[in-house]
């Protein structure tokens, strides 16, 4: 694990050192580019405030992700089961993803106000897609022979989903979930940025207006860290759900 991550860790440390060096020799004025040490300092001093905002953002992200996963799951199963639905809605599904979320967010704010609802809707819109597409691909690529075998044993449609289709779609589902988890945080921040009372996005707009670049960088790192943490959680769940992967082949 450590050996595997060593090159990337070294690369990050190296970049941080260069950054610090650039700031120390005064190549860029301090108010435009704070040094890494300044950022860490801002992070520590702002921690209580950052924590409160982060909790709001996380709450939105979780609720949005939850509904996004549920909707994505149902949509994928329906489209797999009924070919007509697939033909009717798959192109539409793709189109929804070509609309930039920064364009929808203000509309959602107009329709649903500054509270949590528009934010959650935006997150749902941006997270259900990777779930639907991933799961649908997985369901459709299930082994035809295995399905025939189950049919020869008199299995019902539900049993075919239960024993073949859903388990064999798990890897694709989790790839989708990992992307959706990252999208959920970004989606929350964007919608807060465009209108709201709390959350890391709101915090960002405030520090931007104050030209507090050190705090800006601190919040950027925090958002990255939260996204990474969520993705790591998904990976953990993935490993728990699929113990048969990464088996050492022993007889």
């Amino acid at each position: 694990m450590l050996k595997h991550n060593l090159p990337s860790t070294l690369a990050v440390v190296f970049l941080l050192l260069i950054w610090q060096f650039v700031c120390i020799i005064g190549l860029v004025p301090a108010y435009m580019l704070p040094s890494p040490v300044d950022v860490v300092w801002a992070f520590v001093s702002e921690w209580p405030l950052l924590w409160d905002h982060a909790m709001i953002t996380l709450q939105e992200a979780f609720i949005g992700l939850f509904f996004g996963v549920c909707i994505g799951f149902v949509a994928a199963i329906l489209m797999d089961r009924f070919d007509l639905l697939y033909k009717a809605f798959y192109p539409l599904l793709i189109i929804t993803q070509t609309i930039p979320s920064v364009a929808i967010a203000p509309l959602l704010v107009l329709w649903f106000g500054y509270e949590m609802t528009p934010k959650i809707i935006l997150i749902v819109i941006s997270t259900f897609f990777p779930i639907t597409v991933g799961l649908l691909e997985g369901l459709r690529s299930a082994d035809r022979d295995a399905i025939a075998l189950l049919r020869s044993m008199g299995a019902t449609q539900w049993q075919i989903y239960r024993y073949i289709k859903l388990p064999s779609a798990l890897p694709q589902f989790f790839s989708g979930l990992r992307i959706a988890a990252a999208y959920s945080v970004v989606g929350a921040v964007i919608s807060e940025w465009l209108g709201g009372f709390g959350g890391l996005g709101v915090y960002m707009t405030r520090v931007k207006k104050a030209f507090a670049f050190d705090k800006m960088f601190a919040v950027i790192f925090l958002i990255s860290a939260i996204s990474l943490l969520l993705m790591a959680l998904v990976e953990l769940a993935e490993r728990k759900c699929m113990p048969y992967r990464n088996l050492d082949k022993k007889n």
């Binding site: 295995a146 075998l149 020869s152 008199g154 073949i164």
Partner: peptide, 17 residues
């Protein structure tokens, strides 16, 4: 279907069970 046991060419053991 569902009356006779059928073993196909591939073993078709489900990898996740």
């Amino acid at each position: 279907p569902g009356q006779i046991s059928y073993m196909m060419q591939k073993d078709l053991l489900l990898p996740y069970r």
